[in-house]
Design a protein around this nucleic acid. Structure first.
Length: 519
RNA sequence: GCUCGGUUCGUAUAACGGUUAGUACUCAAGAUUCUCAAUCUUGCAAUAGGGGUUCGAUUCCCCUACCGAGUACCA
């Protein structure tokens, strides 16, 4: 039976989505779209303690920005669907709203002997854990200890049945089988096997809030939502045997999804996985969008830092996956075509901020002048530059496009095309603004001012250079004196380009200014 | 500690038993230009260590080291 490909991205709304999370969502999306399948978003909000307001909205907005749009889970306005409909037969997509579903499945497991009721309180278990730890050992609620704890396996039936009625803090735990080797196939890692003796009896359902834990909710929902492949982070690999066993216990092995575990994104230096702190410390975002937490603390985002979503998606795709050839630049559509889980790398990928910038630079170069101008004009306005013709800004953009990494760089690169310099870089002035140079440069300025043809680069450049050359003046020194007057530094565009853009009058003003300031 | 993953230039990765171990980013040098940037060329730089298997191992197996994850009534 060939099933339609259905994958899901199942974030927990406990904070902003990390770039590693976006990558997981992206790989899910690419996998689904390549096979003409569905990409579903499911919100795993079964932990009421850690719920963060706004996180869910953030996650959806972030994915949207990346062009990762779900087929299910979210409606056209970006809200998580709460009631089932023809288009969303599997709704609701928030686990907190699926609460009534889970209990029966937990009870079913108990009835069939795959799970049991446990009455130990969290405090009791924490105390045990601390006690064992003090002896340098680890406490496990499992096959070797369960009979010494308070549960429906160790207690007389009458007793635990009474507790079931009178108390409301019990849990349902999975009864991990003893000494069984679970054989698993991972789409990325291949064959993995684990002996169940090393595994514990995980809590599946909690009476206190009548909510399932991840493991139960995940298996039940993936089954109910007819998920065919689960592509998720490596942190879930140790739970995979439990999940296999749960499918088995429910009798769902026929339609059990295939699993793929993605390696983690590591911090650029040192040890461990990429964290928010690394971004702050090393100066790059770890979140797709800016995030402001409840304390008002701001975490920067790729969007706000000036990254194009296409560049962000591209760089994420290349972090842990490759096409097998030397191509590095891909659109989302191309990625959908060519992506494959077989080419996902097993080892963790260390994020590199330089490479990230390189991607953006490549995308900036591909943008049209018109589009970049649209983005640049607001920047200019924020600098107090208004009343400039769009045509002028477009000319500027076309001259500096390939010199920038971000649109925000445009100002630093070319502010002198909008405002005259008022200071001169000391080092550059000391190097070039010497009397034997600037007397010549001022004569060259006079030549430019006397130039009668139309002011264009083509008209001006040749004659100006010819003039300097015919006088046997040092080209570099003369030009850099002029540049100092026009830019305030000995770096920047060609003299003819600058003069053409700012015009004869402004050129004259800047020459007068530097004469008055430095001569 | 235990369990499960992982380990190729600084970083991302290619090479699915036979290559002078390739590419990109970074860095350096040169070319070019009126400067800077861009561009082009060149260069630096890697198979964690030790055992096997094999005519031959980056590639397969084992051990060690190191890294990561998990070990919650969190996901």
């Amino acid at each position: 039976m060939e099933r339609k490909t259905r994958v899901r991205f199942a974030p927990s709304p406990t904070g902003p989505l990390h770039m590693g999370g976006v990558r997981t969502a992206l790989y899910n999306y690419l996998f689904a779209k390549q096979r003409g399948g569905d990409f579903i978003i499911r919100i795993e909000d079964t932990d009421s303690q850690r719920f963060v307001p706004g996180a869910e909205k953030y996650i959806i907005e972030a994915l949207n920005w990346c062009g990762i749009v779900p087929d299910e889970g979210v409606d056209a306005s970006g809200n998580v669907v709460e009631t089932a409909s023809e288009r969303h037969p599997h709704a609701p997509y928030r686990q907190s709203q699926r609460k009534p579903i889970y209990r029966q499945y937990a009870e079913q497991l108990v009835e069939n002997g795959y799970a049991y009721y446990a009455f130990d309180t969290a405090e009791e278990l924490n105390a045990k854990r601390a006690e064992m730890e003090a002896q340098g050992q680890t406490f496990i609620y499992g096959q070797t200890t369960r009979m010494g704890l308070r549960n429906s396996l160790s207690m007389p039936e009458a007793e635990w049945k009474e507790l079931l009625e009178t108390r409301n803090d019990w849990t349902v735990r999975f009864k991990m089988p003893e000494n069984r080797v679970v054989e698993m196939e991972d789409l990325i890692r291949g064959h993995v096997e684990v002996n169940t003796s090393t595994l514990d009896d995980k809590v599946l359902w909690k009476r206190a809030d009548e909510l399932p834990t991840y493991h139960l909710a995940n298996i039940v929902d993936d089954h109910l939502m007819e998920i065919t492949e689960v592509i998720r982070g490596e942190e879930w690999l140790p739970s995979l045997p439990l999940h296999y066993l749960l499918y088995e216990a429910f009798g769902w092995t026929e339609t059990q999804p295939r699993f793929a575990h993605l390696s983690l994104l590591l911090k650029p230096d040192g040890k461990g996985k990429l964290s928010k702190r690394d971004g702050d410390r090393l100066g790059f975002p770890v979140f797709p969008l800016q995030w402001v937490n409840s304390e008002g603390e701001v975490s920067r985002g790729y969007r706000e830092d000036g990254y194009f979503p296409e560049a962000f998606v591209n760089l994420l795709a290349m972090l842990g996956w490759n096409p097998g050839n030397d191509q590095e630049l891909f659109t989302l559509e191309e990625l959908v075509e060519i992506f494959s889980l077989e080419r996902v790398v097993k080892s963790g990928a260390r994020f590199n901020a330089d490479k990230a910038k390189w991607f953006n630079k490549e995308y900036l170069r591909k943008k049209s002048v018109a589009e970049l101008t649209d983005l640049y004009i607001p920047v200019l306005e924020s600098k107090g530059i208004t009343g400039i013709s769009r045509e002028y800004v477009e000319k500027v953009v076309s001259l500096i496009q390939e010199r920038a990494t971000f649109v925000a760089d445009f100002w630093d690169i070319a502010s002198y095309l909008f405002v005259a310099p008022t200071t001169f870089v000391e080092k550059d002035a000391a190097k070039f603004w010497k009397e034997e140079n600037y007397t010549l440069a001022l004569q060259a300025a006079d030549f430019i001012l006397a130039f009668e043809g139309e002011f264009t680069k083509e008209n001006l450049e040749g004659p100006l250079e010819e003039y300097i050359r015919s006088n046997e003046w040092p080209m570099g020194k003369v030009m850099n004196c002029l540049r100092l007057a026009l830019v305030g530094a000995s770096s920047g565009l060609g003299i003819a380009d600058i003069v053409t853009l700012i015009g004869k009058e402004e050129f004259a003003r800047r020459i007068e200014y530097i004469k008055a300031t430095l001569c």
